[in-house]
Amino acid sequence: MASATTTKGAAGRGTLNSVLFYVFLVSFVLVSVFPLLWIFKMSIVTKTELFASPPTILPQTPTSESYGTIFGDPVFQQALVNSTIISSVTTVICLFFGSITAYAIARLRFRFKGTVMTLILAISFFPAVAIIAPLFIQFAQVGLIDTYASVIITDTVFALPLTIWLLVAFFRELPVDLEDAAKVDGATTIQAFRKVIVPLAAPGVFTTAILTFIHAWNEFLFANTFLLEPAKQPVTVAIPNFATVYTVDYGAQAAAAVVVTVPLVILVLIFQRRIVSGLTAGAVKG
């Protein structure tokens, strides 16, 4: 943000430039949010209005009918519950393993640190589709198909690199002196981690939790592979199927899409500053 000085010289160029700049900004913002607004509009209009040609720009007679349909659907209710369980458990497990590993990487010295980090990073480049068949066979052998555990295990592995990466960046920003002081006072490495680092790192850990949760909430491939029974499927699997359930009820499809997206959008808007710094942490240091 300090780079404002570089553009100071151009300020004399007058208002035309800044008008153009704001036109550009407004169109950029509009393109980004338009689909969400439009789908929201589709979800609150009547069926007649939905099929009107030419389409109306603003909703004429708002109705909550589509939301009634979707919330009255037990499959959708169950899918929301399933997504919440899968994402929450994945987040907790990732934070537990991730914070321990990230602390060792950020703070402790050991010979194979580079190898360890390369292995972890390799997972974020890993094409998940390459292992669905072997995992399906293995999960079937131990009876994990159609259980939350199958998706939680795979989601955990693929979210871990993100969790570890973010936590390493956050841990590195914390002052080392405090831990050293704790160790001088007789604390072990583990105690220094639990009593000093964890509370101090809380904001960073919280941001990591949000991003891990979003990652798990958005996962589709594993859920679509291991969860065949509708009662176990998360929203990402259930909603595309609505296209065949509510064949022409496009309003209900739109409402379902809005319901599962809006919480994420709100979460992201509240914590945007932190999320941006978390997401870009790894990229600029390289």
Binding site: P35, W217, N218, V235, F242, V260, T261, L267
Partner: peptide, 17 residues
């Protein structure tokens, strides 16, 4: 904020929309 809206979308839901 506007930048993050499309990013936060589940890809599947973006596809449905």
């Amino acid at each position: 904020a506007a930048v993050l809206v499309p990013w936060a979308f589940p890809t599947v839901i973006a596809a449905v929309m």
